[in-house]
Design a protein around this nucleic acid. Structure first.
Lengths: 222, 222, 222, 222
DNA sequence: CATGAATGAGGTTTCATTCAT
DNA sequence: TATGAATGAAACCTCATTCAT
């Protein structure tokens, strides 16, 4: 087992004492701050330590290397989004399709835009880090949650849920990222949610095999 | 005169002699290769020079710094995609909406997947580089082309072309990128084009203000 | 906060632990030694580090760049001379002119020749460094001190003290430098002091507005 | 004989054809210009070639290395000053002391200030170059000329001519250099000549063994 | 003779990481 | 545990010089 050695991405030790918890949090927080203020290129372990008010050595007490530090921050961010999406999906089960889309878009966009700067910075971190696996896992979880939710829609059924949920999730990512990274007509900031709803709802309606449940009318009209 | 100096992203000098043309190409090609084989983190000017079979100094004869090297490669890639999209948009003018979508998706996905590995590597380059401006320009060009094409559709009109074209382009980017980066159900590789067509066509149909005429009159008119 | 960054000429951090004080001294000393043994052209940060028995990295812990290293050495040297001259001027206040000249010349030449080799090497450093400002400040201080001293002479008054002190100081510099740099008849090494006294005293006597009083009253007055 | 190889400071070949003369001049001139516009640190052979409108290779046709190029420029400058001083000394033979000093100071300062910027730049070159020997030779020539002139003064004789001439020459250098390098009260630019005359004349008068020649009165009074 | 592409040693600087205190 | 001084590999970049064309 070399899961906790220098090459690992896992945090090194789990803090037990209260003081340690404070320290880890400070380091964590400092990492985000440095990321925002200096950018990922200028994020060095020393700078993080300085910002956190501890010494470099202390940073290495809790994270075996720089990657694991960034990994932790990235993971937290992604988990926040994922959790948010998963919870929304859970709540939205057994609703009509359109309600699902509205709820899903809201959950996703809200989570992403809660910390705009952080989101932006972390796109870069994800690139520098070999975080493919993590991103893949996260994506998988969100797709699963989405698929499961869609599967319970009262007014629609889908042939290929894994494909549909992949498309819905990744279709939301494109415009959202473009907006976060600042390329997008200004008005998009406001319109993003509605447009994403239109996009996903139109797509899903097109693919839906309508269900003649009592409570559901034809969604796609015509 | 000062535009080709050390801080610039512009190539340094235009080769005059024949052999130097070969050299520049070799360096450019080597950059792509190193990018693919080693990843952007391990791309160093020395490694590029080695791969190109020249000395470091030679690299710096043509590119003022490492960034400009990466910038050149990124630019070429993006321009390839952009040109492809623009040409498609031009050709597809005055067609029905669905034909447009099919053509646009094909142009975009073909261009992106023509050099899959290169595309993947360049996502990281774009992140590390301060390429925001370039990406923005490129995006802008594609949106313009798309908007102009959509504006000429024989069977639809749109209220807010800049928003619609932004959504279409960025909605295509999301799933495409996810596929290229390897997170996506395996079958997506094949299904991508069709799904994107469905996605975009559904979205556009939903937003279209239908034109009742079989033979469309002046589009921008009325 | 930003004053100790990479572009500064200021030393980077003040040593806290005892051992680091030793290190800074060693680096400083090594710089002087390399300067003497290899000349300013061959002074590299690596060589300094080697001579100091530390790694390059350590050098950069205390000096943000090579220039700051040289600057520190130059500054110390110039301050040594300046202080010496200022103290002499202070002590010599209210003396007859000739005593002043004798004391001033002694102070200056002694300080300069205390570390002959160092002085020689630093002429080159000053040239390579953008030390114009430092040299100017130092010169200014010495001129001020000289002027103030001369102003208190019991047996002379001067019309234009700033010009007179400039001439005296820079007239001393010429021959001293020539001697230090090894162009000068051999006997000059011994005769320098006396000749400088003659030079300056003759000059000052020529310009002095004689004071007829044996016991001088308020100097700046009458 | 390795006087014309790569390590030599001698120019490589003497141009015979007219075209060559033009080229050498252009290179020479370009060197001075680059020195002034970019400073000695940024003077590279390529930059000189560019400025001269020739290729680097051509520069190396006429100068075996960079040092020889700088050496040539420095030599020319120093020779100009030296020649000027020597000619003045020749002309001033058999004159009274004061006339000599006036003439000498004028010759020296005029030569030095004829190309102020060039003079400044060349101080740095002299430092970087191992030009000690050249400077020493030049100094020696000026001292010889001065000594010989002084020896012919109609109204004075000196015990130690080599020392006296050394002091006179180097005493002029100090203030002149300070003025050229911009540390000096502003008015000094105008006053320099007169002050140097006062300085040197006072010094020489003090050391002179008066000659009771018919045409000469006691110079220093007393 | 002139050109200018190519060379590559060598310089400066950074920064993740270790370890004695 | 925490500290922070020290490490040194490795990256970027320059520029004097050569030589085939």
């Amino acid at each position: 087992m070399d899961t906790k050695n220098t090459n690992s991405l896992e945090p090194r030790k789990t803090p037990i004492q209260a003081r340690s918890v404070v320290t880890v949090d400070a380091i964590f927080e400092a990492t985000v701050q440095v990321l925002l203020s200096e950018g990922p290129q200028r994020l060095t372990t020393t700078r993080v330590a300085d910002r956190a008010g501890v010494s470099v050595g202390t940073v290495y007490q809790y994270y075996p290397n720089k990657q694991s530090l960034l990994y932790a921050v990235l993971e937290q961010h992604l988990l926040r989004v994922t959790t948010s999406v998963e919870q929304a999906c859970e709540v939205l089960r057994h609703q009509p399709l359109t309600d699902m889309v509205v709820g899903l878009v809201k959950a996703f966009v809200d989570a992403k835009t809660a910390h705009v700067e952080e989101s932006k910075a972390l796109y870069l971190v994800a690139a520098e880090l070999d975080a493919a696996k993590l991103v893949e896992q996260i994506s998988e979880r969100m797709r699963k949650a989405t698929a499961s939710m869609l599967d319970s829609a009262v007014d629609a059924r889908f042939d290929d849920l894994s494909m549909v949920s992949f498309m819905v999730m990744s279709a939301m990512v494109g415009p959202t990222r473009a907006v976060l990274e600042g390329r997008a007509p200004p008005k998009m900031l406001q319109a993003l949610r509605m447009q994403l709803v239109t996009l996903c709802d139109a797509y899903l309606s097109r693919l839906a095999i309508p269900q003649s449940t009592r409570k559901t009318r034809a969604v796609a009209g015509a």
